[in-house]
Design a protein around this nucleic acid. Structure first.
Lengths: 345, 345
DNA sequence: TTGAAAGCGCTAACAC
DNA sequence: GTGTTAGCGCTTTCAA
């Protein structure tokens, strides 16, 4: 904030120009009621004194903050990093500022943040739910006042009237499952961090849908969500050691590295001993050893659409909002699921 | 913002309790002047009606927004993602909110953002400069009113009074250079995106410092900063093809993938044909093919320290602020710079 | 211990 | 075209 000494507000300008505050205000807002001449005078002095309107006075007056909040589980994740980038660019385009809140996948933190935001600090909220946020009750304090849009992790409750934007997680899981089948994998380990997210549910069901016609394919689920990567690594190693899986379906980006490390430590060759397919938005997967077959979500597109929806809500145009948008993901087949000599497809 | 119908402000509470607005305000702020009984009554009703103070009225009044802005070149980058995480956690701890601005490495955008922020939307600013932001002139409009701290890319001007927090880029470059020498590399390509950043300068000089004693080592610089990764890839391919480098010193994370891809397309084996060492904070580099030797910057620590410094400034304790902090980075040696049979070290 | 009232900087009726 | 004035919701003197 400006120091008092050099603070230049409407009154400062008005005084120097022998005008009233309101005229100055109108001139600066390019009101039609003010004469071009005065407008020019006002603007010139404003420029000269480097006048900056006080954003908070304006907000208080207009009950609009031109700010949206983004609530995400984590940020060190290609998906969310790309999301933020998309959100930021759309928001900026419409003159909105972007506040960031990271829940670290804690439902309590998420609830606290939502509560905070319900105080009116922002015009709208974009949320990707934390783990275990099965119910959306904690969003209720927003509903009445502050529009919000869910993206990516959107809760597993039945259809509601909230706007949600996600990837086609079911289809993605299905495509991924089909690919594993085509490659001849028959003992699949599904690896996730929580069974309670909308994304996990959809991807898992997609996979099952692909497997259901094949009686000779086994399938097991495992959820591991330890504090450290090292702990995850140990759990995964134990699991891989305990049973004869020939492939892993990694449903979240964060478990990719522990998987690769587990294989290295157990001496499992990818894909000969163990095929790996993962949901990951990291372009670096292309140079992994071996290159990783990935499902790439349209992170940016999801974020952009969610932001646009939110802005429609903010502008009072709810009719333009897509309720339940699902954007297509992409399966990128690489070495980690191609058994050698298997030229099939 | 609340709809008018259900908006509950101090007046609402005051009326229902037959108290004055000021008493209610004091009660909620736990002022000593108000009797415990009234306090309790007020707080209870506030809780019951789910009273939320209007943040903007408070800000307008107190001239403090409890918000800091983070201005960074990009977000799809392990370093900045980790930075944000660190900033967010410290800021939250002190009750600050975090606004995000991405310059996309455009100096003009950066200037516009700074101008915007100088209007008083935030209490303080954390900045990592865009490319070409050699001078810090555009920060001048902040200096008088809004404290800021530079981190990571901090400008290459002589020492100034600004608070800056960086990695030990010179040392990092030196260590990296030494490592390349130890491994017997003699034709080094230094790869960066701009010679005008403080980080580039320091890393390059560090490398040079390591090389200076060795007459038989050749060294060349190349800067490539095209729009797309594909374009960068082509430039790098051309370069690698044109001369006989035996190693590349990649000074920025973003050029790692193009480098690996270039090698793949040119049929260059890493590290036999070309050793690669890179500044990267991505943990995925451990599973690259081959595993990448990296300089890992203390991203989180830098961000945390910068945020703490900023908060000291905000609290009016400039004496606690470190002017020019340099935090140690780490060289992680992996396969990409270890020529086979070279068991040395 | 409580209340009345001024004012933060701005906008927008409502006058003139 | 311009000025006067009443708030926006809050904090904070100053009085009582």
């Amino acid at each position: 904030m400006k120091k008092d000494s050099e603070k230049v507000d409407l009154r400062t300008l008005a005084k120097q120009l022998n005008l009233s505050v309101s005229t100055v205000s109108r001139a600066l807002n390019d009101s039609y009621e003010v004469s071009p001449v005065t407008k020019e005078r006002v603007c010139e002095l404003a420029r000269k004194l480097n006048y900056q309107p006080n954003p908070y006075a304006k907000m208080l007056k207009e009950k609009s903050t031109k700010t949206i909040a983004v609530v995400i589980p984590e940020i060190e994740n290609s998906f969310f990093a790309a999301s933020i980038d998309g959100i930021h660019s759309v928001a900026n385009q419409y003159g909105y500022h972007v506040l960031i809140y990271i829940t670290q996948d804690s439902h309590d933190r998420e609830t606290a943040i939502i509560k905070l935001l319900s105080g009116g600090r922002v015009d709208g909220v974009l949320i990707s739910l934390s783990l275990d946020a099965k119910e959306l009750d904690h969003l209720s304090c927003l509903t009445s006042d502050i529009p919000f849009v869910l993206f990516n992790r959107v809760g597993v409750d039945g259809p509601s009237s909230f706007s949600r934007v996600t990837a086609d997680d079911f289809d993605a899981g299905f495509k991924a499952g089909q690919h594993l089948l085509e490659q001849g994998f028959k003992n699949i380990l599904y690896l996730g961090i929580s069974p309670n997210t909308s994304t996990d549910t959809a991807r898992r069901q997609g996979l099952l849908h692909a497997l259901v016609r094949n009686n000779d394919v086994n399938y097991e689920m495992m959820y591991c969500n330890q504090q450290t990567r090292e702990e995850n690594l140990q759990e995964i190693k134990k699991k891989l050691h305990s049973a004869q899986f020939d492939s892993v379906f990694v449903s979240v980006e964060n478990l990719v590295l522990p998987c690769y490390e587990a294989c290295a430590e157990l001496g499992l060759k990818i894909p000969q001993d163990l095929g790996i397919l993962a949901f990951s938005n990291s372009p670096a997967t292309a140079v992994f050893n071996p290159a990783l077959t990935t499902v790439v979500l349209p992170a940016r597109e999801i974020a952009v659409l969610a932001t646009q929806n939110l802005i429609f809500l903010l502008k009072g145009k709810p009719d333009n909002v897509k309720q339940n948008e699902r954007l297509p993901s992409k399966l990128i087949v690489r070495a980690s699921t191609i058994k050698k000599h298997s030229t099939k497809k």
